[in-house]
Simulated assay, not measured.
Amino acid sequence: MAVTALIARAVDRVAVVDIAWGLGFVAIAATTALAANEGAARRWVVLALVVLWGFRLAWHIRRRAVGHGEDPRYEELLGGRLSEVGLGVAVRKVFLVQGFALWLISLPVQVGAALEVRWWPLVVVGSVVWLVGIVFESVGDAQLAAYKADPDRGPVMDRGLWGWTRHPNYFGDACVWWGIWLAGGLASGWLPGLLTLVAPIAMTYFLVFATGARLLERTMMQRDGYPEYARRTSMFFPLPPRRR
């Protein structure tokens, strides 16, 4: 996060932290997997789950950000551009918060590398939940890209998964980390599971209330057709669309 803050200052864009977010988890998973002495098989499974998710997310955000300026969510959070508010404000409001969040949310990854597996079926269940999350993220992103490329698109994206939830990518992200908690935390036993439960809860909170859906909704509600779309479509958890 310190390196990312310096890069952000150089390019005057706090949004570069979104690329570093996924890569930070990859670094933690690789470090703990290589340093641990226990749970050999399971720690490589957890490492694979985190690496696939983290690199996909970083690649997608990097590709989407090319040619664009600062993310409006960060301008609203900081009260202006980075060059206007100063690096200290960005460090306090973004980089320190996300650095702490990296450590907190990665607790099941660390536990999964340090402890032996007690319940292997939960590793399998967690991997399936992770897969559901990856599908929602990747399919949702692909559908949104196709919508943006369609010259006859409507004012609001409400196709495919976006007709069931207004944020399929955020829902998918939450599933990924609930799956990793099942495979890395709860599969190690009840006590490790309870102690690491804060991780998926914190990730879901960030995705829904902090830097995710709620913050984006403030901007999207200004777009023509979005309030009506919001009335008929679930914000987060996928549900059949309500009648118009």
Rank of each mutant, 00 (worst) to 15 (best):
G80P: 10
L78K: 10
E70H: 03
I105N: 04
L87P: 03
V85P: 07
E76C: 04
L102E: 15
I105M: 10
G80L: 12
G99T: 02
K93C: 03
L104G: 13
D71Y: 02
V91A: 13
E70V: 02
E76P: 05
W103N: 09
K93P: 07
V66N: 03
L104H: 13
L78P: 10
Y74K: 07
E84H: 00
V94E: 11
S106M: 12
L96Y: 14
F100M: 13
K93Q: 05
Q98R: 05
S83N: 12
G86Q: 00
W103C: 13
A65F: 11
K93G: 09
G79T: 07
K93T: 00
V85T: 11
V97R: 01
V97A: 00
V91L: 15
R81Y: 08
G80A: 12
L96C: 11
G67S: 02
A90E: 12
A65H: 12
D71M: 04
F100D: 02
L77Q: 11
W103S: 10
R81C: 01
I105W: 04
L78T: 09
V91E: 15
G99V: 12
H68K: 07
E84R: 03
A65V: 14
P72A: 03
K93W: 05
F100P: 00
H68G: 02
E70W: 04
G67H: 01
G99Q: 08
G79D: 14
F95T: 09
Q98F: 11
L78R: 12
E84F: 04
G99I: 14
Y74R: 08
G69L: 10
V85D: 09
V66Y: 02
E76G: 11
V94M: 11
R64Y: 00
G99C: 09
E76M: 12
L104K: 09
G79C: 04
I105R: 04
V97W: 01
L102D: 13
V89R: 05
L78H: 12
F95N: 07
